[in-house]
């Protein structure tokens, strides 16, 4: 049950460091089981590489259940591979066929420099959140009761849907403009939909968009690939909402 019988040709981006030149390397891997996750297949490949005394392929991963947002990988030209609504760690080898050739590359965007092999630096996302992706409320056992402000279920649900973004960066990797607007708009939307987010609504969107631009991410030109490839199905409606928030914040900054 453990060992499968798929044979694969893997073409993997290898780059020893941020400043080194990278290239695609060829690997043959046999005995792959369709029940393996994609990352378990990479584990198997790494086991083979290590036993040869070579440097293991570096890749980001942690929870392996689709929630931490750490895994990335551009697989056959698609962020998180061919399936919709899943991260790379949730992709299973049953989505591939015996004899397939699979191309595996890192996210490629100016805002996400390669660290090593398939690992990229996504600290730009953290800096965007640091610029305004929060409600300025200090820790206190004396905030108002959690039920003091009723929130319409529909708003709460929409805020939740936006808040399920895992910050993986697939939207950026997919976008021809390397735009981070799906990511940024998801956070802006979450707080725009909730009363707790309203006091800082204007500064938030202005600051976050400013930081987004400074990080080298491009603009949205309504292609919509981000929404399709987002493993959490974050809706592009959020970008429209962010644009409205941005516009109203820009027009009347004093009110």
């Amino acid at each position: 049950m453990s060992n499968g019988n798929m044979n694969l040709t893997l073409k993997v981006w290898r780059q020893s460091s941020n400043t080194a030149a990278g290239k695609m390397e060829n690997y043959q891997l046999g005995g792959v089981s369709p029940d393996m996750s994609f990352l378990e297949m990479i584990d198997m490949l790494n086991d083979q590489i290590i036993r040869k005394g070579e440097d293991a392929i570096a890749f980001d991963h942690d929870c392996r259940e689709g929630i931490c947002g750490m895994c990335s990988m551009f697989i056959n030209g698609e962020a998180h591979g061919p399936n919709r609504g899943v991260t790379t760690c949730q992709l299973h080898m049953r989505s591939f066929k015996d004899g397939d050739t699979i191309y595996i590359e890192p996210w490629r965007a100016e805002g996400f420099p390669v660290v090593k092999d398939l690992m990229v630096d996504r600290a730009a996302f953290d800096r965007i959140i640091q610029s305004g992706g929060f409600v300025s409320v200090n820790t206190s056992g004396r905030t108002m009761d959690a039920n003091a402000i009723p929130i319409p279920k529909d708003d709460a649900d929409k805020a939740f849907d936006a808040a399920t973004c895992i910050g993986c960066g697939a939207c950026v990797a997919t976008c021809p403009n390397s735009s981070a607007m799906l990511f940024v708009s998801a956070k802006v939307s979450q707080f725009a939909l909730l009363p707790q987010g309203h006091p800082e609504r204007k500064e938030r969107v202005l600051n976050m968009v400013k930081q987004m631009d400074e990080e080298g991410f491009g603009n949205c030109s309504n292609i919509g690939a981000c929404e399709v490839q987002c493993p959490k199905n974050i809706s592009i409606e959020n970008i429209a909402r962010m644009n409205r928030e941005y516009l109203s914040a820009s027009v009347k900054p004093e009110n």
Partner: peptide, 22 residues
Amino acid sequence: ASIIDQCVAQGVPFARDYGGLL
């Protein structure tokens, strides 16, 4: 109980009922 108050104040979108309460 303070944890829930704190998280709601931070904008954590907990599940709500149709009346808008948690």
